[in-house]
Simulated assay, not measured.
Amino acid sequence: MNHYQLETDLQHLEQVLARISLNDRIPLSYWRKRVDSLTSVASVPSQRSRVQKLNAALRALEERAQA
Rank of each mutant, 00 (worst) to 15 (best):
H3W: 11
L6R: 08
L6I: 15
L6H: 03
T8M: 09
D9M: 05
L10I: 11
L10M: 03
Q11E: 08
Q11S: 09
H12T: 12
L13N: 02
E14K: 07
E14H: 12
Q15N: 12
Q15H: 15
Q15M: 13
V16I: 11
A18L: 14
A18Q: 14
R19A: 11
R19C: 09
I20Q: 01
S21K: 05
D24N: 14
R25D: 12
P27S: 10
L28W: 00
S29P: 01
S29M: 04
R32F: 06
R32W: 04
K33S: 15
V35A: 03
S37R: 04
L38Y: 01
T39F: 08
T39I: 10
V41W: 04
S43Q: 13
V44S: 09
V44K: 14
P45D: 04
P45H: 09
P45A: 09
Q47M: 08
S49D: 13
R50P: 01
R50C: 02
Q52P: 02
N55M: 13
A57H: 10
A57T: 05
A57V: 02
A57M: 13
A57I: 03
L58E: 00
R59C: 09
L61P: 01
E63F: 01
E63P: 03
E63I: 06
E63Q: 15
R64I: 06
R64T: 01
Q66Y: 08
A67E: 14
A67I: 13
